[in-house]
Design a protein around this nucleic acid. Sequence first.
DNA 1: ACCACAGTGTGGTCCGACCACATGATTCGA
DNA 2: TCGAATCATGTGGTCGGACCACACTGTGGT
Lengths: 247, 247
Amino acid sequence: MTDGPDWRPVKRVRAFEEVVAQIEEQIASGRLRAGDKLPGERALAAALGVGRPSVREAMRVLEAMGVLVANPGSGPEAGAILAGSAGPALTGVLGLHLGLANFAVDDVVETRLLIESWAVEGAARHAGEADLDRLHAIVAAMDDPDLSPDRFNELDTEFHTTIAELSGNALVTTFMRALRDTVRRHQRRAVAELGPDTGALRADHRAILAAIVARDPRAAADAVAAHLRRAYPQVSRVREDAPSPEN
Amino acid sequence: MTDGPDWRPVKRVRAFEEVVAQIEEQIASGRLRAGDKLPGERALAAALGVGRPSVREAMRVLEAMGVLVANPGSGPEAGAILAGSAGPALTGVLGLHLGLANFAVDDVVETRLLIESWAVEGAARHAGEADLDRLHAIVAAMDDPDLSPDRFNELDTEFHTTIAELSGNALVTTFMRALRDTVRRHQRRAVAELGPDTGALRADHRAILAAIVARDPRAAADAVAAHLRRAYPQVSRVREDAPSPEN
DNA sequence: ACCACAGTGTGGTCCGACCACATGATTCGA
DNA sequence: TCGAATCATGTGGTCGGACCACACTGTGGT
């Protein structure tokens, strides 16, 4: 394994990478926290001994990762502010690599099934009364007969996101939402609008909620699996976890 | 719900965002495929009617998302080439938001447990003889008594990544690796080196492999869970999926 | 007290220039 | 003739400067 000189191809370090690295370090060490505001681009460039374009490229990278937002103008809203949720960044990454065929739509849906099944089990175990009320309200709101498709989608997102939150794992929530948005954006581009009629989807939601209310994690997971299979019928690969009749 | 004027805050569209959007569109529509090379920055800027800095910032964004790599010089290796795995990009995003306390280390480990448990079940069902040989070879290689910590870690990564691949879901593989790298990088920064002695970890690997060989998905998942609990003892929150004694 | 206005600082954009690098054609020498 | 040093070319990387649009802020005037 360790035969021959075996050089590494020399690490090319670009200026903006060093800028990103330093900001990352400030974040990791806790010297920079969420809500903090970075110095202005000009000041930062001077402090780091690089040109403003390098600082700007670093900003773009951090912005793409959902770490900061940049606002022009003056006042408390202006400048580069550390904030951010990882969600949109993840959605973007997943969407791009979906387009590059680095993985398939089936993979995405299957992963969402895996994650959301787990999340709903947690929800069935730990949901409090207030949580259940929120879910009931969402389900009820989706029964409005003259609901715009966009609004319907918003409520659907809220339903699933709330369930994910009840798992108590913020990362799972983020993943779940990113996976859902990725699939949705992808099929928006290819196929027509909502495939299955909303009636079946709303019935699924009620079944999921009923299982959560009944504190039955297994039934809740099954209901979620059935729901996703109905919502994404074009996805062929849907595996079972426990009840595998094979072998 | 639709009361009042209800303005949207005006979409600020920056030039580089438009550039990114156009490249994204070319990718989504299939006109740009993996392996393709983009025009030079100057040519692209001229074609799009923007300045070169805007094109460069777009490049940085796409590069940060793991979509392309940029090489200077001349020849077939030079230029902006579409390629890329999503892995490093995901690791970067997760690490940053871990530092920003948008989610906790426990969340990350728990999510990895969830994903890898599922993956190993698939591996136990679908692994072929060649796959098992690969795993056996890795496990054997890790028994070398004078193995550098770095090399040990490489092999450990290979073991877990191979299992994830056997699930047949490329996205799960990517996630698994990103989660693992995120935790590792994080504790590198905080705590000392390898916590548990390698002997127990290697024994865990053997147990996981044995369950896969035995085609026992349930046992394999349990073995993975036990392994992760041993590897990350500082993580308090480790839930069970099915065998929950509570309730 | 109120309002209009210039001042100031922010990010956004662009231009032009130069550098380092890798390649390929060219030229010069043996 | 063949080889090797050299130059030309084109790439991304970096920089400084300049200008713009924007949003706030203080300072005038009314």
